[in-house]
Design a protein around this nucleic acid. Sequence first.
RNA 1: UGCCCGAUAGUAUAAAGGUAGUACAACGGUUUUUGGUACCGUUUGUCUAGGUUCGAAUCCUGGUCGGGCAACCA
Length: 559
Amino acid sequence: MSEEKSLNFIEEIVETDLKEGKYDQIITRFPPEPNGFLHIGHASSICLNFGLTEKFKGYTNLRFDDTNPVTEDTAYVEAIKKDIAWLGFKWENENYASDNFDTLYGYAVKLIEKGLAYVDDLNAEDMATLKGTPTEPGKNSPFRDRSVEENLDLFTRMKNGEFPDGSHTLRAKIDMTHVNMIMRDPIIYRIKHAKHHRTGDAWCIYPMYDFAHGQSDAIEHITHSVCTLEFIPHRDLYNWLIEKLEIYPSKQYEFARKNLNYTVTSKRKLLQLVNEKFVAGWDDPRMPTISGLCRRGFTPSSIRNFCERTGIAKRENLIEYSLLEFFIREDLNKTSWRRMAVLDPIKMVITNYPEGQEEMLTGENNPEVEGHDGERQIPFSRELWIEREDFMEEPPKKFFRLGPGLMSRLKSAYIVRCDDFVKDAEGNVTEIHCTYFPESKSGEDTSGLKVKGTMHWVSVKHAKTAEVRLYERLFTAEEPDREEGDFKDYLNPGSLVVLKNAYIEADLANAQQQLADNPDRRYQFIRKGYFCLDADSTAEHLVFNRTVTLKDTWAKLVS
RNA sequence: UGCCCGAUAGUAUAAAGGUAGUACAACGGUUUUUGGUACCGUUUGUCUAGGUUCGAAUCCUGGUCGGGCAACCA
């Protein structure tokens, strides 16, 4: 089992570092800000960071980058922890940037004492003006050359709450003409009279990302600090601060975030969809969030496989949703129980099957595995529900289902021939009449009949009603946030279709118990797709979510 | 008109100067009591122009295209 798998560029760096003896073990971290739910893009980062320390020697910390109290919340902390655990990863330590506020404050004082930071009284607008542009150098602030004593005094008073929000900032004293705008005296502390989700009212000044992230990395002795491409310009500052503060030299590496087509992965935009009620919540099954994918019926391994397969690189990308679908189908094909459900019903009457007669038929749970994962009993009778699309009044040549004179097999039951059909006043077909062949019973077929089609069905008398929710892509554009106008203009109005009266086979009435017995229980509604029981279900009212359809070459053929 | 990052089939990702490969998608076929699955096969690619070299996707130079950089966000 020694399959030679090529390493991605970050794994190569780690392998080289280890080989050269730079570290005894590596330490990575996953650093979410608790201001939203994790999405599929984060899954990639999680798999990378935890995967690195699984593959090589070391461990991974979970660290919440909670330096902006106005957007952060403990509820997000809990959701994030749940999602990472669900994906199957274990963090070594649960840390918070806010745990380091005292240390960080000390670092700031140290910088001031070295003459490398100053308190600025400029407002945001004036500061932006003096900052220059990517092509023009900036100009020094008139407050840039205050004495160490004055800076220390002012910074202390900032901390003590003597000033209102926005009146003062602490800036690193670097170079206002630097080509990298991040290095033009970046703000490292700002005043925010806001309650923090962990430190409460203890502070009214908070460090900026650049003065918290790298420092927290250093405190935790992170060896490889992996982030996304947009932080490349920040690396200069990251390294400058390590040097001036004389702290542990963590190294930052950047990779390209993963983008999925027909969706958005920006916490800001996802929050908008939630707040403005375009979706039912962060865990709406249409959301690309981990919790949304979970509720939709995706498995942790399908997501991990997806992340593994799409890899890590530095180029911009837009991954096709069909790849995610492939991995969930691959997984569920091997594990899901086969059941029958009729989503858009029409009645079939088997005219030569005695009225009042019933029989129990046997169906395997999963033909893909040895022993078929057991079996269940399926009641059969004279009247059945079948899928409306499985009957055509004037079928084309290659139609293998039912139409006048056509024969088809009812899955796990008998072969039937369509003899007649009934129409209502408007010309809609309301009932299909068939005859069945008693000697064609599944498993003991002696009829000698050969049919190309097999259909699913549910006995009218024994059918249970359920709600079935069908999901399609959330957006109609491949990259909604790059289109003209607002990304919400491209929401797919058909992303959720609710079928209130689908008919499910009798055994599915036990779905709640089956889920309690096995939290991974999923179903394949034969010929219709993979489904899972939704949390909205009650004993009287079952709700199923469609995770993904089956591949359908017939549908492709007719379209 | 600055600096930084990038460019390999439709998509994503390998090939560390030596046969351009893998997966998905697409297409065709075999099997099938799911028009599913499985299996077999086919199509499609190194942005461009030079240079170095016996040999370049890979190294060098110029260009083109795409992305990023001026939040008291992370």
